[in-house]
Design a binder for these strands. Structure first.
Length: 732
DNA sequence: AGCACGCCGACT
DNA sequence: GTCGGCGTGCTC
């Protein structure tokens, strides 16, 4: 009996596979297919074969099309996604399809597209670069590259410059070059790799340890203070692994902002090794192309954001997770996975090493390191030996007269840098002009109608804006509550700080970096270039500035207001704040100049600042862990949230009460708490609530969640609210 | 999730 | 008389 039935995963919120007749088509596991589903067509992935079906055989439909020209997804990737879907209580088909580039979710064959490639004509070969005007730099470089190479594809041209395609087209018009269509591939230009810096003893030790254990699963926690040269350790490791034929390395980075930076550093050091990036700033076709290069094994280095943890990589030999503590590794909608945790699972299943790098490891990771589940490697010296640690001081804002929110000490320090022609960075985690619009008469505050939040004043556009739902409205001329015309923007945001500085220090050249000023595609790169060229004296910005950027002439970092995080009800707030402040402090004095960090706070004696002043992650982490253990918080217990939202809170409450009772009856090993409302009670017009489940027994929690989800799916009330399970939640 | 069917209220 | 509201049910 031939196996004529295909078991197919579809992008539907039903956690099962669907049976189809193969219809004579030959398909492999992991292959993409098109099938009829209800009245429409759907893309599916073949997950298995069978001879019989539980479903009435006469109702089975045949698959419409098998995309035989595409590589099937390998079983390692399928199994990893299956594990994730089970662990995070998410329908497998949806988890699988959402891990693919969007082009592969669309109903069209996605064979690698054709692209144009250029070569010199007979005439072009007789020409010299000196005939091209010196100012047409890109054209000159493209011409030289064409001289050096037989054929250059568009992707290869992109590596020269963003204007290189245009220059190549012009060369065709001039008769110097010709173009033709070729199958998209991935070659690299022959060029010299950048010079290798020497490693210090700690770096060398770290590399050696991992290299000596390179063929088995081990989790390495690379704890290195800012400037200690973690990236150089990654590069040496990659060199080692990539030396064996076909080997692939996956590097995860927290945000797209950091991708181009690391990408160019890797490209300069791995000039002849094919590298692709995977992040949401790519166009759909770029994303597909890069993904397919990874899947085929052509790309040896893959650098990407969290979603790239699910990329099929046939010869994966090493996973590196940079800034492993970063919260953006956790997806906050649909399947709420943590890319770092999935990376650990993937490495373990492949029996390969995984390296977690951070200056301030997540407490979960630190806990695992101290419990010897992870292997700890410490980098305590700054890689540039002359570089000194910054001097950190807290200024008590209750004891001095503030000038527009700035302490005299900070202003003096800023003036000193200006006089010395050194640069400063002011860190303030609030976008906009001021976070609150306040009525001086009745103390009315402009609220967001759709969220339980306040509207932020944006003076530039003369608008009030909600940073949670994006709602915008005009700034009212009088108080809607009492009619008073005296409305005050209260508190400080980046825009106001920028304005204040311009008044106080009229000679200073100031640049602001936040989501508003960076929305244009190359804006951040342009500002950072200006900083490097000493065209900026003071940078004002949000946490976007905290990460990765290296400014040798920056010697002062000011932190304006972080007190709200000190007393936040979120038990992870202080961990996050500490990591953030360590990171910004690390921006100061990276080269041969000692840095100064000034923190303005009402609580200068807070333990967090004491730890920060001595740059002592280890003691602070241990102290935080002790606290967590006493009150039984993660990592000492495992948590899961049942989140729900609806227009009408009564429905949410009814649903959560029902779920609460279910959980109570389902498991004795898991503690369940009464439904409560999250910090953001209302978001985008939806009333929200959640139920917290907690246990020291991960297996019991998994079992409970499986039962809970299957029971809830049948309930009428569950259809009236939007609900989701969040395993190992980061936000409450 | 879509997309149907289905049974009740105000409109050309 | 029908257009359309969203409840309910199904998809191999």
């Amino acid at each position: 009996m031939p196996k004529t039935i295909l078991k197919i995963a579809l992008d539907v919120p039903l956690d099962r596979l669907f049976d189809y007749l193969s219809g004579g088509n030959v398909a492999q596991i992991g292959q993409r297919v098109l099938v009829p589903f209800g009245r429409r067509s759907q893309i599916g992935i073949v997950m298995g074969f069978a001879e019989t079906s539980e479903f009435p055989i006469e109702k089975l439909k045949p698959v419409t099309q098998v995309f035989v020209d595409e590589l099937p997804i390998n079983t390692e990737t399928l199994n990893l996604i299956k594990f994730s879907a089970d662990y995070y209580q998410y329908p497998f088909g949806q988890a699988l399809l959402s891990a693919l580039p969007s082009r592969l979710r669309q109903i069209a064959p996605a064979v690698s597209r054709k692209q144009f490639a250029y070569q010199l004509t007979e005439f072009g070969r007789t020409q010299s670069v000196d005939q091209i005007p010196k100012r047409q730099l890109v054209t000159r470089r493209v011409f030289e590259a064409l001289q050096a190479s037989e054929l250059l594809t568009e992707v290869e041209l992109d590596a020269i410059s963003s204007g290189a395609r245009k220059a190549a087209k012009q060369l065709v018009l001039d008769g110097w070059a010709s173009s033709k269509q070729v199958q998209a591939g991935l070659r690299v230009l022959e060029q010299q790799s950048a010079i290798e810096p020497d490693l210090n003893e700690e770096q060398a030790h770290a590399v050696e340890q991992i290299v000596q254990n390179s063929t088995e699963f081990k989790a390495w926690l690379l704890h290195g203070i800012t400037g200690s040269g973690k990236t150089e350790v990654y590069i040496r490791l990659m060199q080692h692994f990539l030396a064996s034929k076909d080997a692939q390395v996956l590097v995860l980075v927290p945000e797209i902002n950091l991708t181009p930076q690391l990408e160019s550093r890797f490209r300069s050091r791995f000039a002849n090794i094919p590298l692709v990036s995977l992040h949401s700033n790519l166009s759909e076709s770029e994303r597909l192309h890069h993904w397919q290069m990874a899947q085929s094994g052509a790309a040896k280095i893959v650098i990407g954001t969290r979603l790239s943890i699910f990329t099929p990589l046939p010869n994966l030999k090493l996973i590196i997770i940079d800034e492993e503590h970063d919260g953006s590794y956790k997806q906050q909608d649909s399947m709420r996975y943590h890319a770092r945790d999935i990376a650990l699972v993937r490495a373990k299943r492949l029996n390969i090493p995984v390296v977690l790098g951070s200056a301030t490891p997540a407490l979960e990771s630190w806990h695992n390191a101290t419990a010897n589940k992870y292997n700890l490697l410490s980098l305590n010296q700054r890689a540039v030996t002359a570089a000194q640690l910054p001097n950190i001081e807290c200024i008590d804002t209750t004891k001095v007269n503030l000038q527009q929110g700035l302490t005299p000490q900070l202003i003096t320090a800023l003036k000193l840098r200006l006089a010395r022609k050194e640069q400063s960075l002011l860190f303030i985690n609030r976008r906009g002009y001021s976070p609150v619009l306040l009525c001086s008469a009745c103390h009315w505050i402009a609220p967001c109608m759709r969220c339980s939040s306040r509207l932020v004043v944006h003076l530039g556009q003369r608008k009030l804006r909600c940073h949670h739902c994006g709602h915008e409205q005009k700034i009212p001329l009088q108080c809607p509550s009492c009619g008073n015309a005296d409305l005050h923007p209260t508190g400080h945001g980046t825009q106001r700080l920028e304005q204040t500085l311009a008044q106080l220090l009229p000679t200073a050249r100031i640049a602001r970096v936040d989501r508003d000023s960076i929305s244009r595609k190359n804006a951040l790169v342009e500002i950072l270039d200006k900083v490097h060229n000493q065209e900026i004296d003071i940078l004002v910005g949000t946490q976007m500035l905290a990460k990765g950027h290296d400014f040798p002439n920056l010697t002062l970092v000011g932190v304006i207001d972080t007190d709200s995080a000190l007393h936040s009800p979120d038990f992870r707030a202080s961990e996050r704040l500490f990591a953030q402040l360590m990171q910004v402090a690390g921006r100061a004095g990276r080269a041969d100049k000692a840095g100064q960090v000034i923190i303005q706070t009402q609580f200068p004696e807070h333990v967090l600042f004491n730890a920060l002043r001595s740059q002592d992650y280890v003691s602070y982490a241990n102290a935080m862990l002790q606290e967590r253990e006493q009150v039984q918080f993660p990592p000492y217990v495992f948590m899961a949230l049942l989140r729900a939202e609806a227009n009408d809170f009564a429905l949410v409450q009814q649903f959560l009460n029902h779920a609460f009772k279910l959980v109570r009856d389902l498991s004795t090993d898991v503690t369940v708490y009464d439904p409560i409302r999250p910090q953001m009670e209302r978001l985008k017009g939806m009333e929200r609530g959640h139920v917290l489940m907690q246990t020291s027994n991960r297996g019991a929690l998994q079992k409970l969640l499986r039962n809970l989800v299957s029971q809830l799916r049948g309930q009428a009330i569950a259809a009236k609210v939007r609900w989701a399970i969040d395993v190992d939640p980061l936000e409450f």
